[in-house]
Amino acid sequence: MSRYALVTGATSGIGLALAEALARRGRNLLLVARHREALEAIAAELAQRFSVEVLIRACDLSKPIQLTGLLMELEEGTYSIDLLVNNAGLGTSGAFVAQDWLQEQQLIEVNMLALARLCHSVGNVMAGQGNGQILNVASVAAFQPGAWMANYYASKAYVLHLSEALREELKEHGVGVSVLCPGPTRSAFFRKAALDDRRLASSKLMMSAEEVALATVRALDKNRAIIIPGWRNRLLAFSPKLAPRWLVRKISARINRRFLAHH
């Protein structure tokens, strides 16, 4: 049976870059995203360029019925998944209580609930097989609270902590779990989250999605627990440990407020 790397949110940004980096290494892919036309175009290109098999599934992970359908298909064992990449994620910005609740709920459903369900389902199969890898995509935001992006920061903290815990639980079953915590990355994320990234454009913190993906696949080879591409981003991730929590909260809030597109 052919083995596949399953990548969610595979039509843009880090997800697309990871799919390409894996295909370049000869990995067969199962790409999951909302938009079928985009998936079809990407699958055709990757299959042609790298001579790998690329399957697609159009699925909105914020819709429980669609997610359940995908999980049932995976649990039936039609495909053997040896790498699960939970990359799909949403961001929102602004005062939490002023947000449209349906958007905030959608963020929770994609960033946390869908990720957890995929880890639970695919991780269970991997544990039974005695091998496999899971990569969950969090953010440097996971290491601190973030006013004006409160729900997003909190969701990434959940991903970080869940991933670290699962790593300990699953290692005795031969399954590796890693968590990717990138810093600012050139992608459509800022626009979709209503953030103004012009001030970050020339920042040395900013990396391309391709740079992040290359660093990630290399770290996966070494089964790294926490992957933070770029030394500046590693410093950014661990600096909150050096300051009192009240100061971390205030600094994070001040920085985030500067990037609100409508501010």
Rank of each mutant, 00 (worst) to 15 (best):
H173E: 08
A127K: 01
A58K: 01
V85C: 11
E45P: 07
A154G: 09
L260D: 12
L170Q: 06
E109Q: 13
G13C: 01
L180A: 01
E20A: 10
L102T: 15
G26H: 01
M1R: 09
R254L: 06
R232C: 04
E76H: 11
A157N: 11
G9T: 03
M126D: 05
S252C: 08
N223K: 10
S80G: 05
K204S: 15
F143H: 06
N87L: 03
R234M: 10
C59I: 04
L214D: 14
C59A: 10
L242K: 10
I255C: 11
H161A: 13
H161S: 15
K156I: 06
R224G: 02
E45S: 15
L22C: 01
L247G: 07
S239W: 05
E76V: 03
A41W: 08
I42R: 07
V175Q: 02
I228V: 13
A150I: 00
Q129F: 00
Y153Q: 01
W231P: 15
H161G: 14
S203P: 00
A98M: 12
A225F: 05
E37N: 09
L22A: 01
T68S: 15
V97Y: 12
C59N: 00
G128H: 00
A114V: 05
L166H: 12
Q48S: 15
A44L: 09
M207A: 12
A98N: 14
G132C: 03
P64H: 10
G174I: 07
W148A: 03
F96S: 10
M149S: 08
I255R: 10
V52R: 12
D60P: 09
L113F: 14
A201E: 12
L236Q: 09
A127R: 04
H120D: 11
N87I: 02
R249D: 14
N233H: 00
R257V: 01
G9A: 11
A201G: 08
A44G: 15
A88F: 01
G15D: 03
P182C: 08
W101A: 14
R36E: 13
L170F: 05
N151W: 01
